[in-house]
Design a protein around this nucleic acid. Structure first.
Lengths: 137, 137
DNA sequence: TTTGCTGCAAATCCTTTGCAGAGGT
DNA sequence: ACCTCTGCAAAGGATTTGCAGCAAA
C-alpha cells in the first residue's frame, strides 16, 4: 500500500459522489501534486480488484468509482448523469429466480435505477415556469 | 429509411448475439462493401433513439446492440463477455418499491445478471482436468 | 538487491465529427 | 433545388502501456 494508493482510497471514501478517474485525479492532486493520471487508473484497478472499492460501469461512457464496497444499488439521473446510492432490499432473491431462465451459471447481478434528480427536476420546472411566465412556487 | 439503415436493422435482427458497432460493421460490409463505420454509428444512434433497437451500456467498455426492442434482461459472461437474453419476470415492481428509498423521480431500471456461460464453464473444467490429468467426462 | 510502483509521454481503443459530394423527393 | 444522408478522414475522450528511475523490503 503506497502513499498514492492510500490517498486515493482516503479521498474516495470521503465523498459519496461516485467520481470518475479524472475527478479523483483532481482530488488526489491537491494532496500529491505530482501524482499522474496513470497512477490513478492503475490504483483504481488494483483497489477494485481487491474489493476495497467498486468500479461502476453501466450507463454513461465514463467509469465512476464508489468508495463503499458493501452491497447497495444506484440511481442515475438521466439529465445530469449524477449517481446516488440506494440502500434497499428488493425483497426477492433475483439470482436464484433467474436460474430457471438461463443456462449460464449465475454469479450475481447489477441493478441500476434511472430517474431525475431533485436538482434537475427543479431546474426543468423553473424552465417551464419561466417559459410560460408562471410563478415558481 | 436509407438502404444502409435498413441493412443495419436487418442484420441486427438476424442475430441474437448482441454485436458491437464494429461487429455490425463487418456484418453489413458483406452486403454493402463501401459502407463506413461512421454510418454504422450514426444509424445505430438513430435506431436506438427511435426505439427500434436497444443500446446496451453496462458491463464491459464497448457498447453492444440488441435487435429486440421489447423488454427483457441480459446475462453477461464474466469470462468471455458474451451477452445472452433472459426473458424473465422478477415478480416485483422494483420501480415502485424503490421510490421510498430515493429522492429522485424513478423512471426505470437496468438489470443485468453476471455469470459464466456454458462454453467457458466447459473450457475451465477441461483446463482443470488437463492440469490434473483427470478425465474430462 | 530485488521487486514493485511511480511519473511521464506515447499509444490504443472506441466513438464522434467536419466536410464535400451523392441520393432521393 | 432541397434536405438528408453518405464515405472518408481527422479529431476526440477515456483508458492503457512502455520505460527509466525511485522507493521500500
Amino acid at each position: 500500500m503506497t502513499r498514492q494508493r492510500m490517498v486515493i482510497l482516503e479521498e474516495l471514501r470521503k465523498v459519496n459522489t461516485h467520481p470518475s478517474a479524472d475527478e479523483i485525479y483532481e482530488m488526489v492532486r491537491k494532496r500529491l501534486p505530482r501524482v499522474s493520471l496513470g497512477t490513478i487508473y492503475r490504483n483504481l484497478e488494483i483497489l477494485s480488484g481487491s474489493g476495497e472499492i467498486q468500479k461502476l460501469d453501466s450507463g454513461s461512457s465514463l467509469k465512476r468509482f464508489d468508495g463503499r464496497a458493501d452491497c447497495h444499488h444506484h440511481i442515475r439521473c438521466e439529465r445530469c448523469d449524477r449517481l446516488a446510492d440506494i440502500f434497499f432490499d428488493p425483497g426477492v432473491d433475483l439470482n436464484s429466480r433467474v436460474r430457471d431462465f438461463t443456462d449460464f451459471s449465475v454469479i450475481g447481478h447489477k441493478l441500476e435505477f434511472v430517474g431525475v434528480c431533485p436538482d434537475c427536476r427543479r431546474s426543468s420546472e423553473a424552465g417551464l415556469h419561466a417559459a410560460r411566465n408562471l410563478p415558481t412556487d
